[in-house]
Every structure is written in C-alpha cells, then in structure tokens.
Write a protein that binds this DNA or RNA. Structure first.
Length: 278
DNA sequence: CGATCTACCTGATGGC
DNA sequence: TGCCATCAGGTAGATC
C-alpha cells in the first residue's frame, strides 16, 4: 500500500508530533514485526530515547535517536503508524506501542505482518540493514535531477515498469505511481529504458517529480480498503487524480477514446492506455 | 544481468 | 447468509 507519498505523509506527522518527545515505555506484541533483530533489541533500543528527527529514504522511515541509534520502520503492504491518547482502545494487529512523554501512544498496526520495526546502528547500516544502504536516489532529494535520471535509465536495458519499481535505482515508486508515471510519459510498461532519448528521460524525471509532489500535497492515495492512513487516522485524496490505476475498462482521461487495460506484468497488476502508451 | 515466479500474511471482495 | 477462490499498494530470493 504505502509508496513514497504515503510514507512522506506519515513522516511529516512524526516530525510534527513525535520528534522531541521521550519514549517512556515500549511494548512489542507480535515477534514477527521485530524479526530482523529481536523483541529485546527493539524495546531496549527505544525505551528512554527521543527521536531527533523524522527522516525517510524511499519507502523507509529512518528516525535518528538521541542514543546514536536509528529507528527504521517499513510499512510494507498493510502497516500503519497511528498516534492515539494513552490507554485508547487499540485496533487489532497492533504489534508495537510506544508510550510517549505527554500522554500519547504511537502504534505500529499491521494485519499482514510484512512490515518491520528495527533499531540499528547507522554506522553499521551496510551490515544491519543492507537494503537501506543500497537504496537508489530519492525523488524528493536534491540528487534527483534530469541528468541523473537520464543516466540511471539510459545506462540500463530494462523494461520501464520493472526499472521504476527497482528500489536500488530510484527509491520510493511503487505499483500505483509507476503506472501513473508511465501513462503521463506515454510509455508502455515494456518500453526499454536504453531506448529512451535524453529528452524523454527528462520527461520521466519531470513526471516522477510532478506526480509524487502532487500526491504528497494530497496526503497520498487512500484506496477503498482504507489501509493507508496518516498518523492521525486521516486518508489522502490523490486517488481522485489517478489516471490509470484502478480504472480498468474506463475511458482514458487523456485521449478520451481507448479504454484502460489491466494486465499482469512481473506478477504485478498493471494499468495502461493502449492508445496513448507505446 | 534480467525477467518471472514464489513466499511471506490477513482481510476484503465477488461469485455461486 | 455462507462458503470459497481470488486479489491486494512491497521486497527478497530462487530459478531459468
């Protein structure tokens, strides 16, 4: 569920409401959520610490603590971070609860349990969280330029959809926004990245920046199942602006003629306009 | 190297 | 209403 815009919305909530407040007590329910290390490592690593800032790289939340360690949270498919009053009724599948100074709790809720909570030493990230060390450029960072995107895309011979989803190249794009970016740039999912002109690669850069930026401004995309919500439990509304995702058989909003096709590519649902995208 | 498939889980949805 | 099959936004690892 959550891709960069949704994770960024959660990050902003943490920056506004959790950074600077001491974590007084930690509860870990389900062991699977902390499988990377252990229940003890997460409890001992968080208890008594304070988040210095709320960071993000791609879909990974990375929050440095005053202990020198860093808290990593990945929401994967169904994870949520929710802020609630101390003692409030917890939803099912609340696997971690942080009791914050000032009488609130921060919950990690995750029905499918793909998500993770890790406390790690940032100086040792390559060993403790290698996938974080190997993340590609973040589209909201200064390093995300037209020239860099052209280099990343044109230097590889990959199907465009698979490449946009590859977190080692560009970090943060998931299935929804990959389809939206490809539609905006009129590229089909199987267009080879090595065939892009420099100009076209620049358009891909611009589409990523525009679409992710607009989605962040809209608070992300909350689909019918409402599995993505922000820290306060509110939904985003960028789903109202999707032009291909979840619009199977509907008329393309760009050409007004063809109907959106839904197919499966590399095991992922893929939506595109057969008339606009080549 | 790259594409595809599978596995990890639970819940929502749709067909019968 | 109930049962069952199918599908879901992510990622890593195996296989070809």
């Amino acid at each position: 569920m959550p891709e960069l815009p949704e994770v960024e919305t959660v990050r902003r909530g943490l920056a506004e409401r959790v950074v600077g407040r001491r974590i007084e007590r930690v509860e870990v329910g389900r062991e699977r959520t902390v499988r990377r290390t252990s229940r003890e490592a997460v409890i001992d690593g968080l208890q008594g610490t304070t988040m210095l800032e709320a960071g993000r790289h791609g879909k990974y939340l990375l929050c440095p603590l005053d202990s020198g360690d860093t808290l990593m949270v990945h929401l994967r498919m169904s994870g949520q971070l929710l802020l609630a009053p101390e003692g409030a009724q917890r939803p099912p599948h609340t696997h971690v609860a942080l009791h914050l100074e000032g009488g609130e709790e921060l919950w990690f809720v995750d029905p499918r349990t793909f998500g993770e909570v890790v406390v790690f030493d940032p100086d040792n990230v390559a060993v403790e969280l290698p996938e974080v060390a190997n993340l590609g450029v973040d589209p909201l960072s200064e390093a995300f330029t037209r020239a860099e995107v052209a280099r990343l895309l044109r230097g590889r011979k990959r199907a465009m959809k698979a490449l946009l989803l590859d977190q080692h190249v560009i970090a943060g794009i998931g299935n929804i926004y990959a389809d939206e970016v490809l539609h905006r740039t009129k590229l089909r999912y199987d267009h080879l990245s090595s065939d892009l002109s420099t100009r076209k690669a620049g358009q891909v850069h611009d589409a990523i920046a525009d679409i992710l930026g607009a989605a962040v401004a809209a608070g992300g995309s909350t689909l019918r199942d409402a599995r993505y919500v922000d820290l306060m439990g509110g939904g985003g509304y960028y789903q109202d602006f999707h032009r291909v995702y979840d619009r199977e058989d509907q008329i393309c909003l760009t050409c007004g003629k063809a109907r959106i096709v839904k197919t499966v590519v590399a095991g992922r649902s893929t939506h595109y306009c057969p008339r606009c995208q080549r």
